[in-house]
Amino acid sequence: MTQVSMTVNGKSVSGDVEGRTLLSSFLRDHLSLTGTHVGCDTAQCGACVVHVNGEAVKSCNMLALEADGADVGTIEGQANPDGSLNVIQQAFQDHHGLQCGFCTPGMVMSAAALLKENPRPTEAEIRKYLEGNLCRCTGYHNIVKAIMAASGQDAGKIAAE
């Protein structure tokens, strides 16, 4: 066991982990932050996407010890300080961008990373960026719409009902 310390959603945390402990396991099992989901074992589904030092990474494909000292953000830390949904979360609700909710944390975290580097992405840029996030429920229509809306674009006009 080795001690690992990091900042998660602005809070300092630490714990004893094995070399093989994944960041996703550390978040879920040690910190009980179960909003980060694990949907595959080949780094494809993206349900486990979190931010490490501001960048989107697949937490089930990164060792917890690799995140020692890092600033980690998870879905649990995304809402506004008053607890209300942030702009992206609100857009997902407004545009029905989720159904079963399992892929949703990863989608929201990826969307946040996208909008940070590209504040007004086109439909094509959004679809391309979501290459690493699988959703089986929505057919992606309303996810793309929600992200456009979150970036201040008129999603209704672009995606005719």
Partner: peptide
């Protein structure tokens, strides 16, 4: 290569 999250690692 891969996807954005994979490219970050």
């Amino acid at each position: 290569i891969g996807d954005p999250a994979v490219r970050n690692r």
